[in-house]
Design a protein around this nucleic acid. Structure first.
Lengths: 233, 233
DNA sequence: GGGGTTGTTATTGGATCCAATCACTGCCAG
DNA sequence: CTGGCAGTGATTGGATCCAATAACAACCCC
């Protein structure tokens, strides 16, 4: 209680509407893997933990549903979707087609500063070895390269795809050793070079290849499904 | 009032949860063009007209937002998104890449009965001249051809694209004469033949061409934007 | 002893009331 | 006459209470 009390929450983190702050909190938790696929999210738990009523939680869950982070069934509540191998395969094929389009649309409008930022992220990925940090930087690199894409629809679609696949991408990257990271790093380098040369064809080719390779490797690891989270039905 | 009273609503159309019935009502209205792009949707109006409280309306609007039919801003409410020429162009490029994928995924699983149904829809499109009916049948034809697609994510993405572009597709089809309809009819024939031959390459080619041609023609009609609906900012 | 059934409990869905925010109009000063 | 400002009305956002549904468990009858 007292979430609306300005005294008890003087810092006011997130500032904006309450339902969106809750959505942001849950989004971070899900993307960080703190809530596993298949795990149920009870409205009252969240409401109590964040010191608010259940109502904005309901709205937050609907917002997250729109972003592909939760799924909702009537009278049964929300849960983080669990994917099977076939669904993940299709999601990667969607990425393979949509993200090159996003990059093509974005590239002409990327500023020099934004490209420098990509370069910085790329260097930090190579330097830092922590998986959690890698997940954040990898996402920042790709989505950052689409920053110049003016289309709201395309941006949100791509984000949805990243959201939905995130848990499995993490499980996949946690499998192998450094080897896997080197390959990713090399492919990012190729994409970044093409961006700096302002060469859309090459950028599209390398990006599509990057995603396609990952999809094929994922298909070789059926143990990712069911192993990620096993909390009943 | 009395929406939950089983006596006053014995037929119980839609059966399911109330917020989803409301969403269905609004969805139909928007797709039918009864609510124009840019037009605002006030919660209380809808609540009153459907004899319910504002709360399920809020949820319904969030559901529709997830489907790309409305957009929502804090403290300002929901409205049907209005697109500019650039955004529509990108949406069609997205369709051009995603829908062939959906068709490829769907084709192997289409039953003979489903293909007969597509044939039936195709004939009805050719026979019937009414624009409203055409919009329904055209949508049924395309989305029906993706019925075998098992991926929930891909299906909903494609549906979102159809939702977002629907008002402009209607405005476009209302422009020309029979000429435009003949071309669409012919292209549908090519796609359907490829489906019946179970030829994924041809199907993908014809479908992509169908969408691409429409995109290019749309680009030649800048008068579609702003003409569709003009209810202030 | 097993299967169907019924009662109980936990959880979500909906209605009403209250608070906060935003847009708009009219006013006043420059 | 025009720009800024304050007050007011309209509209959305949130909290609390109540109803409905579904999972679960104990029970009874066969």
């Amino acid at each position: 209680m007292t979430s609306s009390n300005p005294v008890t929450s003087p810092i006011d983190p997130g500032a904006g509407a309450a339902s969106e702050r809750i959505a942001a909190q849950l989004r971070t938790a899900i993307l960080a893997g703190e809530i596993a696929p298949g795990e149920r999210i009870r409205q009252e738990d969240v409401a109590e933990r964040l010191g608010t009523s259940r109502l904005p939680v309901r709205e937050a869950l609907r917002i997250l549903e729109a972003e592909g982070l939760t799924e909702h069934t009537a009278n049964k509540g929300a849960r983080v979707p669990r994917l099977d191998a076939a669904e993940l395969d299709v999601l990667y094929r969607m990425r393979e087609r949509l993200e090159p389009l996003a990059l093509i649309q974005s590239m002409p409008h990327l500023t020099a500063g934004e490209i420098r930022e990509l370069e910085s992220i790329h260097e930090r990925i190579a330097a830092d070895a922590d998986l959690r940090e890698f997940m954040v930087l990898d996402r920042a690199f790709h989505l950052g390269s689409y920053a110049g894409c003016a289309s709201e629809q395309l941006s949100s679609s791509v984000t949805r795809l990243w959201n939905a696949t995130q848990p499995y991408r993490r499980a996949f990257m946690s499998l192998g050793g450094q080897h896997r990271r080197w390959i990713v790093d090399h492919e990012h380098r190729l994409i970044l070079d093409a961006i700096e040369r302002r060469d859309p064809e090459d950028a599209e080719r390398y990006l599509a290849g990057h995603i396609r390779r990952t999809r094929i490797e994922l298909a070789a690891h059926p143990e990712l499904f069911g192993a990620t989270a096993a909390r009943r039905t």
